[in-house]
């Protein structure tokens, strides 16, 4: 019970202090909408609302990726700099509980980001044919792995600007290598192994399968690989926190 009280209050504090702030809410809404409009204008030389479905997997994946990675990295680096993070490290709760609470805020923010383009799309196309269970699972797993990547950055960064720089350093290459804009099969051969080392590749594939029916890998395999990524990243982050933050 005591652990749950601490977990819930860390999560609540993060949501109130960071994620529910106007700049972040507006980012969460404007970013996916801008990408949707940009892609619609780009595709077929003019606005074609029926293309929205084809854009959804990419938009959702990107929204989650951008929403989660930088937010968690920035909030943790910010708290570390102000030393309020020490308060969490000194609380009588396990490191995994504290990390899970911090991750949960960013994951929820990622989920919110992911469904902004869905809500937008629902006004124009019929979304009933989509496998929503798989979509939810895919978005959740993308949010978890992206958030953990954000945590990995937070452990390495000392300043907020470093966290932002590191986030962009891996986020943008990831976007082009995960099959979002170009199918992995059309990438140069030497880049393909890198694609398969990125969790977003499996998340995008899972979303593509659920929304468009064009997944290249079996959904179960994608889910399993994403789970493995999540476990490995969580363990590695905890190890890094113990090594770098408890000196």
């Amino acid at each position: 019970m005591k652990t749950w009280i601490a977990f819930w209050n860390i999560l609540k504090k993060d949501i109130q202090n960071y994620y529910l702030k106007p700049p972040n809410i507006s980012w969460g809404i404007i970013f996916p909408l801008s990408w949707t409009l940009m892609q619609l204008i780009r595709s077929s030389g003019g606005m074609n609302l029926s293309d929205i479905r084809a854009l959804l997997p990419g938009l959702m994946a990107m929204s989650v990726l951008f929403g989660t990675t930088s937010m968690l990295a920035v909030t943790i680096t910010f708290e570390r700099k102000g030393r309020s993070f020490d308060r969490l490290l000194l609380a009588p709760i396990s490191l995994s509980t504290m990390v899970a609470a911090k991750l949960s805020g960013a994951i929820l923010f990622g989920l919110f980001n992911a469904f902004v383009p869905v809500i937008f799309a629902s006004f124009f196309i019929d979304l009933a044919v989509i496998s929503w269970g798989v979509v939810l699972l895919a978005v959740f797993l993308i949010a978890v792995t992206s958030t953990l990547l954000g945590l990995l950055i937070a452990v390495s960064a000392k300043e907020v600007f470093e966290a932002q720089t590191f986030s962009n350093f891996f986020r943008f290459p990831m976007l082009f290598l995960c099959g979002l804009f170009l199918p992995v099969s059309s990438l140069p051969v030497f880049l393909r192994p890198i694609s398969y080392l990125l969790p977003l590749t499996y998340g995008t594939d899972l979303l593509g399968g659920a929304i468009l029916g064009v997944g290249t890998l079996p959904p179960v395999l994608c889910v399993l690989i994403l789970l493995v990524f999540a476990i490995v990243l969580f363990t590695f982050c905890q190890y890094n926190i113990r090594r770098k933050w408890i000196l």
């Binding site: 019970m1 009280i5 601490a6 209050n9 969490l88 609380a91 009588p92």
Partner: peptide, 8 residues
């Protein structure tokens, strides 16, 4: 918040 970290 600090109290909640101790399970209060």
């Amino acid at each position: 918040f600090c109290g909640s970290l101790y399970g209060m």
